[in-house]
Design a protein around this nucleic acid. Structure first.
Lengths: 204, 204
DNA sequence: TAGTTGACATACATGATGTATGTCAAGAGG
DNA sequence: CCTCTTGACATACATCATGTATGTCAACTA
């Protein structure tokens, strides 16, 4: 009933990931020293190199954990929505607001792609993005939205949300920016709704 | 008529920026050694630290130069278009395709934001982004598109284009992905066109 | 109880950045 | 034409970060 060995391992990994989240978010990946990161966790670099594949490996683990939390939060929001379309849009709005949090923005959205490359090719690619694409496909099958290429469209939409969040977080009045961005986002998303026959004007 | 001193300086800076473009694009910012970068330019790190504010400073200069070239190419495309709306969309399509080039993608779109932060707050913020916003405002004044917040919308659109390009460049069939992405992008942009009265259905 | 595994710490080698100092040619002035 | 000063660039040095190799001691196994 005392601390078994496996428990210690789990605890150590958790401490390292936790310190990683704090330090990466506060100082950025490049400016983070593993020495002080591990010291903050009450460990040494030896532990880190034993459990993870170096600095990169820790970043991957940190991003995985943050992504899991994001997914959970988004799923909850989706479940509380009335329709699938409403859930889809609510999720995106929530995503934009979440992406304003420094931990997510700095670690997942800025350093992540720079260090690990294209998010859609990560080992465990961002579950949030997959949710967006899945929703699009379901909505198309339901006939709730127009037929488009779900993959391409989901990348466009998540990209819009990403840069939008970056803008919000760095503006002097984030509240106002957030409202304006969500409003504009809904305009863009409205193009997914099915067209009444012939109602769309030809481009000027 | 011989090499004057000012000419040498310009030449040296150009050599450093040129080497920076190559090396940053090929190996990424973090993995680039200033020693080999300057050696490739036939110089030493002393020259670099004399002319630029360290590694960051060189990156800024490199991005400035690339951005200037992008702007030039985009302006040309805009000028060859019939209407402002067509110029706007042509520009975006061209942007997506340009952002597929490794130099632009790696240096400007991945490492740039990670090292220098939010692009819209860069010392000389990306001219391309400003062009998008300017176009939106003009189109709104003309009455060619609906009234939206130009700033928010331009961030959304450029973000969509950015992540879309990232996807294209890392897919196994870039040609096909490019077509699909442009098609989806045009769907999203169609939401900017003015609505015939009451033709837009309420959301389900 | 003794032996083995492995979690983690310590020690070391390598290389990168940034800075301080040195050198030598280009331009200014008498 | 000669000297002095400026500054473009190179060299030398200090610091520090990563990664790896080695060591140690507690936990499981037989």
């Amino acid at each position: 009933m005392g601390r078994t060995r496996a428990d210690m391992i789990i605890e150590t990994r958790a401490k390292l990931i936790s310190a990683g989240r704090r330090t990466f978010a506060a100082k950025g990946y490049a400016a983070t020293s593993l020495e002080e990161l591990t010291a903050e966790a009450g460990l040494t670099r030896g532990a880190l190199y034993h459990h993870f594949d170096g600095k990169r490996g820790l970043l991957e683990a940190v991003i995985d954990q943050i992504d899991a939390e994001m997914t959970e939060r988004l799923l909850e929001i989706f479940d509380q929505s009335e329709s699938r379309w409403e859930g889809f849009t609510n999720e995106l709005v929530a995503y934009v607001e979440m992406a304003t949090e420094p931990e997510i923005q700095r670690v997942v959205l800025l350093d992540g792609p720079a260090v690990l490359g294209d998010p859609s090719h990560w080992p465990r690619q961002l579950t949030c993005l997959q949710m967006t694409m899945g929703n699009l496909q379901q909505l198309m099958e339901e006939g709730s939205i127009r037929t488009v290429n779900a993959e391409a469209m989901s990348h466009l939409i998540s990209g819009a949300a990403l840069l939008g969040s970056l803008w919000i977080a760095n503006t002097s009045d984030p509240e106002r920016a957030s409202r304006e961005l969500v409003e504009s986002l809904m305009v863009l998303l409205s193009s997914l709704l099915p067209l009444p026959q012939g109602s769309r004007p030809a481009w000027p």
